[in-house]
Simulated assay, not measured.
Amino acid sequence: MALTGSIMLAIMALPTIISISEDAISSIPTSMREGSLAMGATRWQTIYKVVLPAALSGISAAVMLGMGRAIGETMTVMMVTGNAAVIPGMPEGIVESVRTMTATIALEMGEVPMGSEHYHALFAVGSVLFIMTFLINLIADLIKQKYRFKLEGS
Results as ranks from 00 to 15, higher is better:
residue 127 S to N: 12
residue 45 Q to P: 04
residue 101 M to P: 15
residue 31 S to E: 08
residue 79 M to E: 05
residue 137 N to T: 09
residue 34 E to L: 07
residue 146 K to W: 11
residue 71 I to T: 14
residue 49 K to R: 13
residue 83 N to E: 08
residue 129 L to E: 14
residue 26 S to N: 15
residue 145 Q to N: 10
residue 91 P to I: 13
residue 6 S to M: 10
residue 23 D to G: 03
residue 10 A to E: 08
residue 61 A to M: 13
residue 4 T to W: 00
residue 2 A to R: 01
residue 136 I to W: 07
residue 103 A to V: 05
residue 70 A to C: 10
residue 135 L to E: 01
residue 135 L to C: 10
residue 86 V to L: 12
residue 111 E to D: 15
residue 107 L to Y: 04
residue 88 P to G: 10
residue 23 D to H: 14
residue 106 A to C: 00
residue 124 A to M: 12
residue 84 A to E: 07
residue 151 L to H: 14
residue 105 I to R: 04
residue 52 L to G: 03
residue 99 R to T: 02
residue 114 M to A: 11
residue 153 G to P: 00
residue 1 M to L: 01
residue 77 V to K: 05
residue 93 G to T: 02
residue 142 L to K: 06
residue 81 T to S: 13
residue 118 H to N: 15
residue 96 E to K: 10
residue 137 N to C: 08
residue 15 P to Q: 00
residue 10 A to S: 04
residue 16 T to Q: 07
residue 65 L to Y: 07
residue 110 G to F: 10
residue 36 S to N: 01
residue 56 L to G: 02
residue 73 E to L: 12
residue 45 Q to D: 13
residue 9 L to S: 03
residue 16 T to K: 06
residue 34 E to G: 12
residue 72 G to F: 02
residue 148 R to K: 10
residue 64 M to F: 06
residue 151 L to E: 14
residue 124 A to T: 11
residue 98 V to S: 10
residue 1 M to C: 00
residue 121 A to S: 12
residue 73 E to T: 12
residue 58 G to D: 13
residue 123 F to G: 00
residue 9 L to D: 00
residue 61 A to E: 09
residue 50 V to Y: 04
residue 70 A to M: 15
residue 38 A to W: 12
residue 141 D to E: 10
residue 126 G to E: 07
residue 26 S to E: 10
residue 137 N to Y: 09
residue 44 W to M: 03
residue 129 L to F: 05
residue 136 I to L: 12
residue 114 M to N: 08
residue 14 L to P: 00
residue 69 R to M: 06
residue 30 T to H: 04
residue 135 L to K: 04
residue 147 Y to K: 06
residue 51 V to K: 11
residue 136 I to M: 09
residue 59 I to G: 01
residue 53 P to F: 01
residue 78 M to F: 02
residue 74 T to I: 08
residue 73 E to I: 05
residue 23 D to N: 06
residue 79 M to G: 11
residue 4 T to H: 01
residue 114 M to R: 14
residue 8 M to D: 04
residue 116 S to C: 15
residue 17 I to E: 03
residue 132 M to W: 06
residue 143 I to Q: 02
residue 143 I to E: 08
residue 53 P to K: 00
residue 122 L to I: 03
residue 112 V to R: 09
residue 42 T to N: 10
residue 71 I to V: 14
residue 120 H to K: 13
residue 41 A to H: 07
residue 127 S to A: 11
residue 2 A to C: 04
residue 6 S to F: 02
residue 121 A to W: 13
residue 10 A to M: 03
residue 59 I to N: 07
residue 147 Y to L: 12
residue 89 G to N: 13
residue 154 S to C: 01
residue 64 M to P: 03
residue 59 I to T: 07
residue 43 R to A: 05
residue 106 A to Q: 01
residue 75 M to H: 02
residue 34 E to M: 05
residue 116 S to M: 14
residue 101 M to K: 11
residue 97 S to I: 01
residue 74 T to D: 15
residue 38 A to K: 11
residue 59 I to C: 02
residue 35 G to F: 09
residue 25 I to L: 07
residue 16 T to M: 07
residue 34 E to I: 09
residue 61 A to L: 14
residue 54 A to I: 04
residue 65 L to N: 13
residue 9 L to G: 01
residue 37 L to A: 06
residue 97 S to H: 03
residue 129 L to G: 00
residue 75 M to Q: 07
residue 17 I to G: 01
residue 43 R to Y: 05
residue 120 H to E: 15
residue 74 T to K: 09
residue 130 F to N: 09
residue 129 L to R: 05
residue 11 I to W: 12
residue 126 G to I: 09
residue 141 D to Q: 07
residue 99 R to L: 11
